[in-house]
Design a binder for these strands. Structure first.
Lengths: 239, 239
DNA sequence: ACACGAGTCAAACAAGTGTTTTATACAAAC
DNA sequence: GTTTGTATAAAACACTTGTTTGACTCGTGT
C-alpha cells in the first residue's frame, strides 16, 4: 500500500527479533536460519544503492537472497525496517573514517592536518565497500528519510567541525566565522567530485581509484585548498 | 506495467501532435485546449523535481493540473514522454546560461573571465526558477535516463571545456592536461555546494540566495580558486 | 512423548500503478 | 448538414506493489 518513506509506528516484528525466552536460538540442519537475515542485508544494500528504496521490490531482494517473499517482513518488520538497518551500517562506517582522520592529524601543524584529513577521507570515499554506502547517502540527499538525521549528527557534523577547526587555525579566524565556513564548503565539495557519477563518465573522466591516483588527487585538493584558504583568509572582509 | 526508465519505441501519440491536415487547430469555447498541455508540464516539472520520476503518479500530476488521467497519454504518449519534455526545457535553460557566461568574459584577462564565469553560473544555479531544473539533474545523477546524454553534451561539456580553457590560460598548461582538469573539477564542485540540500539544512547552513549573498559567495569561490590554480599550476609535476 | 516457537513457504490480499477503451462535446472543413 | 479531428471524461484493464495468512518443518525444552 503506501510506500512513501515516513515515520510510522514500528511494525511488530513477528517473533524472531523478540524471542520469548531464547537462550539458544533454534537452528535447523540446512545451515540457514540467521544466515538468511544477513543475506537479505547484503543484497538489499547493493540493490538500494543501485536503484533506490522505491525502485527495488521486496520480491527482488528476496529472490537475490534466495529467500521467501515473507522473509523481509519476518526479519525486519517491513521494507523500511530493512532499509533503516542497511543505512545504519553506513553511518557506522563513516564515523570510523572520521576518527581515523582525527588520529592521523594529532599533534601535527594545521597544514599537515589538512593534508592527512583530505587523504584519509578520499581513501574512505573511494574504498570499494564504502562507495556503496556513499551512493545511499547521495540518494538521501534527494529523498531524505528520518535516517538522515542520525547520519548528519553522527557523521557529517563532527567532520565539518573538525575541518572548521583546522581552517580557523590556518586563518586565525574563529571556527564559526562565515569566511571559515565558506572555506570548509570549498574543501569538502572538492572531494565529492571524485565519486564516480554518470556525468563524469559521459565526459570521459575515467578516474581510476588506485592508491597512487587517490594520493595524487588528495595532494591536488590539499595544495589547491591551502592556497585558497590563505588567499581568502588574509583578505580583510569587504562589503 | 513496467515503469523502469528505458529506451523504447516512441509510443504513438494519438493524434494531437501529428494532425492530419491541421491548419487552424480546433478550439473549444471553455478556454482550455493547449492550456491543458502546458499546465501538465508546469505541474509535472515541480512534482518530478520534488519527488522523482517514479514516485510521482500520473493521477497526481493530472489532479494538480485539473486534467483527466488520460490527458498525459493523449498529449505526451506516456509518462516518460512527459518527463522527457520537462527535462529538455532544463537543458535549454542551462545552455542559455553557458552562453551568457561566455559573452560576459569576452575580451577579458583570464582571471576576470573566471570571476565572471563563476558569478553568472552561481546566479543561474540559484535563480529560483532554475533551481527546480537543477534538482531534476541531481536526480539524473542517481538514476540516469537516456535524456542525460543530451544534457551532458549540450550543457555540461561546453561549460567544462570553456572552464578548462580559462585554467589553461592561467597556468600556461594545455586544456587537456591532467592538472588543468583537476582544477576544473575543484572549481566546478564548489558552486554545487551552494545548492540547497537537506544535509546543509540539518547542519544549520542557511544560505539565503539574495543577490548580495550570491555575489559574496561567487567572490569567495573565485579568489579561493584563483589562488588554488596558481599554486598547483606553478608546481612542477612530481611523481 | 509432547508442546512450543523459530523459520520458511506458497498463496492470497488490498491497494495501488500506467495505460486503454469507449463515449461525447465541439469547432472547423467539406 | 455531414464529416473530420481535437480534446476531454469516466470507467475499465492488466499488472505490480508491500504485506499478511495459514500451513508446514524441525530443533529444543520439558
Amino acid at each position: 500500500m503506501t510506500t512513501r518513506l515516513a515515520v510510522r509506528p514500528e511494525p511488530r516484528v513477528r517473533t524472531a527479533r523478540h524471542p520469548a525466552r531464547a537462550a539458544a536460538p533454534a537452528s535447523r540442519g540446512d545451515g540457514n536460519d540467521q544466515e538468511t537475515r544477513s543475506r537479505l542485508l547484503t543484497v538489499a544494500e547493493r540493490l538500494f544503492a543501485d536503484r533506490g528504496f522505491k525502485d527495488v521490490t521486496v520480491r527482488e531482494i528476496c529472490r537475490g537472497a534466495r529467500a521467501n517473499v515473507a522473509a523481509i517482513n519476518y526479519h525486519f518488520g517491513d521494507k523500511l525496517g530493512l532499509y533503516r538497518e542497511v543505512l545504519q551500517s553506513a553511518t557506522d562506517a563513516m564515523r570510523a573514517t572520521n576518527e581515523a582522520a582525527r588520529r592521523a592529524g594529532h599533534g601535527q601543524p594545521p597544514d599537515e592536518k589538512l593534508r592527512r584529513y583530505i587523504l584519509i577521507h578520499l581513501q574512505g570515499l573511494l574504498a570499494s565497500n564504502y562507495e556503496t554506502l556513499h551512493r545511499l547517502i547521495h540518494r538521501e540527499m534527494n529523498d531524505p528519510t528520518p535516517v538522515l538525521d542520525a547520519f548528519v549528527e553522527q557523521s557529517v557534523r563532527p567532520r565539518v567541525e573538525y575541518l572548521a577547526g583546522i581552517v580557523a587555525e590556518l586563518t586565525g579566524g574563529r571556527p564559526t566565522d562565515q569566511r571559515v565556513l565558506r572555506c570548509v564548503a570549498s574543501i569538502h565539495s572538492q572531494s565529492i567530485a571524485y565519486l564516480p557519477n554518470p556525468i563524469a563518465a559521459r565526459l570521459g573522466f575515467h578516474f581510476k581509484p588506485t592508491p597512487s591516483q587517490i594520493e595524487e588527487a588528495a595532494r591536488h585538493i590539499a595544495e589547491f585548498s591551502l592556497a585558497g584558504v590563505r588567499a581568502v583568509g588574509s583578505k580583510k572582509s569587504e562589503g
